[in-house]
Write a protein that binds this DNA or RNA. Sequence first.
DNA 1: TATGAATGAGTATTCATTCAT
DNA 2: GATGAATGAATACTCATTCAT
Lengths: 196, 196, 196, 196
Amino acid sequence: MRTKEGNKEQAIFDAAVEVFAERGYHNAKISTIADRAGIATGSVYLYFNNKESIILTIFDRLWERVLAGISVTVARTDLDPQQKLNSIIDTVFDFFISNPALATVFVNEQHHLIKDGRGNVAEQYDRFLDIAEKVLHDGVKNGLFSKNVDVSLFRHFVTGGLRNMLRQWASNPTAIPLDRVRQTLKYVIIHGILRT
Amino acid sequence: MRTKEGNKEQAIFDAAVEVFAERGYHNAKISTIADRAGIATGSVYLYFNNKESIILTIFDRLWERVLAGISVTVARTDLDPQQKLNSIIDTVFDFFISNPALATVFVNEQHHLIKDGRGNVAEQYDRFLDIAEKVLHDGVKNGLFSKNVDVSLFRHFVTGGLRNMLRQWASNPTAIPLDRVRQTLKYVIIHGILRT
Amino acid sequence: MRTKEGNKEQAIFDAAVEVFAERGYHNAKISTIADRAGIATGSVYLYFNNKESIILTIFDRLWERVLAGISVTVARTDLDPQQKLNSIIDTVFDFFISNPALATVFVNEQHHLIKDGRGNVAEQYDRFLDIAEKVLHDGVKNGLFSKNVDVSLFRHFVTGGLRNMLRQWASNPTAIPLDRVRQTLKYVIIHGILRT
Amino acid sequence: MRTKEGNKEQAIFDAAVEVFAERGYHNAKISTIADRAGIATGSVYLYFNNKESIILTIFDRLWERVLAGISVTVARTDLDPQQKLNSIIDTVFDFFISNPALATVFVNEQHHLIKDGRGNVAEQYDRFLDIAEKVLHDGVKNGLFSKNVDVSLFRHFVTGGLRNMLRQWASNPTAIPLDRVRQTLKYVIIHGILRT
DNA sequence: TATGAATGAGTATTCATTCAT
DNA sequence: GATGAATGAATACTCATTCAT
């Protein structure tokens, strides 16, 4: 039989991330993804049930890794909430540094999937937000963070801001030093814009 | 008759905002928009060249009004940068309060249009960002805002965060008091999360 | 607007009967039917929801007419069961004489639709069989027909035989005089093959 | 090894009869047949050229056996035409009793193959009809059967009726005693429905 | 202007068949 | 021979856009 050369599923996955990033989910053709992966169109369906399951798999793995990463951090007892917040930001940044196209797909397509309740995207995103909210709550409780901030709204503010800065960076990864993005983000979350 | 024409274009515009908000741009059908506007499908094309021009017009008018609103504010000499920042936020909020569906379309569809360089969306968004950046710069210059913040990145952070909080609010306008959203936003931009 | 010229639904219906007869349902392409009907492919979907609904409509109308025809006959009190049987046969024959292609579709495709329980085909066919069975029962009751015949099986025998003779005729309508088919059918149903 | 090959071909054959009976020829997948036969998909093509050749082989063997069976009967000089007719019916019945799924395939798929002139199906069916016709002719000639029956049409009537009764029986073999089917068939062919 | 029937390009998906191992 | 992964041709259906009335 013809044996699997390399990992075709991964090739399709990678090609799909690229094509979804370039054209958007709705304008991406399966045939283009197959071409990019170096296989025949029909072979895509040996590894994925349909077009949607490809993007759902992308988000599934994305959140799986991010959640795994931050779960370790938030469980640590030797870090205060501010350090945990910094660590969460680092995890997300590090993840997307390794794949700008994935960052693009993430910022562009997630809300469609959540809006229509497809797959586990909404659930995983909620888990992420809940973890972040817990860190914020802890910070408020121990007096580190201000009581004037509604943490359940703040988490949306931060993720939205984070996403938009990532989009900016992903649209042209070489133009903006990612560390500058990261430092700006950490600073403004903690101190806001006012001079201290 | 001019009045009638004006009414029909507006009817299509309003119907399109509703339908785009409900189904998303790609899943919205011209025939649905026409139905909602109370006209025949073909009549849509008497007022708009094609589907895309409808959403481009939506964003054009959106930004036109927002930019008109904040331009007045930033030109004033009796306001300091922090007050101007607050006023910009108020302008955006007030605009979307009057039309939650428009807020939904804004947060969900803008990036597709910018990404593909359609219409003037990117240009107008840039103008908005530039205005905001100038206010921030002025604040840094006169010592009100911190020098640790990269203002050209910060503006992306703020708009992303603003957009995401609006999405949250627009998804269920009655669940979250908009003033709480507004106050949280203003506070965290100025002070960050740290207790002062 | 472009008004309907002629009856497009009927044109599609007629074209579908032809194409289904020539190629069989599974090998018939919507585009071929549209071509034959002199319209664009997409226009087919203005009149029918999908391919299957076309053939279901064909059978619906077929049985509707046949059932309407024989219902009148069996309700008459001035005919004995044998005369009613003859009349039922005439109705079916007359119906298919007017459209050999329809006869072909009928004999070739009905069982697939019944087997998969699509539409009302099975129900209408059952109604037909029930009507025929009632006539047979009446004949047995009044001593005209033999008690040695299981009428609920006999009706299947007759319809199968009828269908096969029609198939033969429809495959080459000019080769066999239909009246000879009709007379043979009537005779053997009544007398069997034995010399009387 | 011949034996092994023979077993596999038979396994495919048997699996195909089952699957064709369950799903119909067009909806039957080669992969399903291979699964059912306990072999790999590709191995099917070591024994059959393509999907169609499988069903053609099914009909080939079916008719081969039926024709072999009835040929013996019709050659006998100690039987009159009525006895020969009964014997032909018995041969067909006995053949299908041993394999209801084969009966289902026979009644459902034969006409597609004949219609398109595939394989030898039409020829073998014609041979069968000719043999039956000869028996009928002999009966007419020696005064046993009626001259009012067109024997070349009657044979179509009988085979169609036979097929339809078999379909009925095959759809639910336990519901109808096959001997009742057989007796009804023999009776009506000989005597028709009229009380004698 | 206004209509809405008609158009036809565009694409996800299936599955019989092939072939490298 | 046997495998089953890989192939890619084939096609129903959608919907933005057009245009005859």
